[in-house]
């Protein structure tokens, strides 16, 4: 059985955002997230505007609200910490539904939840409209060092292979009646993980040999596709400009 492909977040139904150059989309997403992060946590209206912007983009990207919501659930494990914050801390307390919570903890938790959710929402739109290889090309064009993009490329390329190795090892274990219930029965899983590490390391050596055999001397060849037009940059930068305007207005409103 094949492992799930690494870029299952991509929406194949082409929308207007799909055809924009990846470097513009990446830069726009990053700058927009920076604007969100820079917004004061007390400016509820600003986060409402951001949410509207992200939801509108998700529609343009042909992501259904259901799919968008399901993808947002990815952040739940990361938000556990934020949900605990109001219960621990110092300073004044407030009563919410009969539970006594710390005011500062509530603000800190809210700050993480709202900014994290908006950041993830923006990333979902980016991932839905940009294939992973395009993303790497975009990073190269934004002058990210080629060594980093090459590492990213290898990771994407070999993630499926490692996942299917892992799956085959699991099937082989289960085929010999392995059904761990307790932590001390997990030795086989740990040993399997170690052997997967060794196998991946050995594959790395073989891949390097294959690269060297084709003249690799330490530098990855660059992407040869044409660069983005000014009009495409302008279109993409509307989003971070709007974000910056909202953030500045929010700070202005607090003065």
């Amino acid at each position: 059985m094949k492992a799930a492909h690494a870029h299952s977040f991509y929406v194949h139904e082409q929308g207007r955002l799909h055809c924009l150059p990846p470097e513009c989309k990446l830069a726009a997403a990053l700058l927009f997230i920076l604007a969100v992060v820079a917004t004061p946590r007390e400016a509820f209206w600003a986060f409402g505007v951001y949410a509207l912007l992200v939801l509108s983009l998700s529609r343009v990207a042909n992501i259904s609200f259901g799919a968008f919501g399901r993808r947002l659930t990815l952040e739940i494990p990361f938000l556990a910490f934020a949900f605990l914050m109001p219960f621990f801390g110092t300073g004044s307390q407030v009563e919410v539904l009969g539970i006594s919570l710390y005011r500062e903890g509530l603000w800190a938790g809210w700050n993480i939840v709202v900014k994290g959710t908006l950041g993830l929402g923006t990333s979902i739109v980016l991932a839905a409209t940009t294939q992973v290889p395009e993303m790497l090309v975009g990073m190269e064009r934004l002058k990210v060092p080629r060594t980093f993009t090459a590492i990213g490329g290898f990771m994407v390329r070999y993630m499926d292979l490692i996942a299917s190795d892992l799956h085959r090892m699991k099937v082989a274990r289960e085929s010999r009646c392995y059904d761990p219930r307790w932590i001390w029965q997990a030795r086989a899983v740990a040993v399997g993980a170690a052997s997967l590490f060794i196998r991946s390391y050995e594959r790395g050596e073989r891949v390097f040999m294959a690269m060297v055999s084709r003249g690799y001397e330490g530098n990855m060849p660059g992407a040869g596709a044409p660069i983005a037009l000014r009009s495409q940059w302008a279109m993409c930068l509307v989003l971070p400009c709007a974000g910056a305007l909202v953030a500045v207005s929010a700070w202005w409103g607090l003065r």
Binding site: P133, A210, Y216, E217, P221
Partner: peptide, 23 residues
């Protein structure tokens, strides 16, 4: 090489075939 997965490491087939001549 014996395992094509050792030889094909770029994001697309085109980039992989271009890797050698680009080097």
């Amino acid at each position: 090489f014996q395992d094509p997965d050792d030889q094909l490491f770029m994001s697309t087939v085109w980039e992989d075939v271009a890797f050698g001549p680009a080097n």
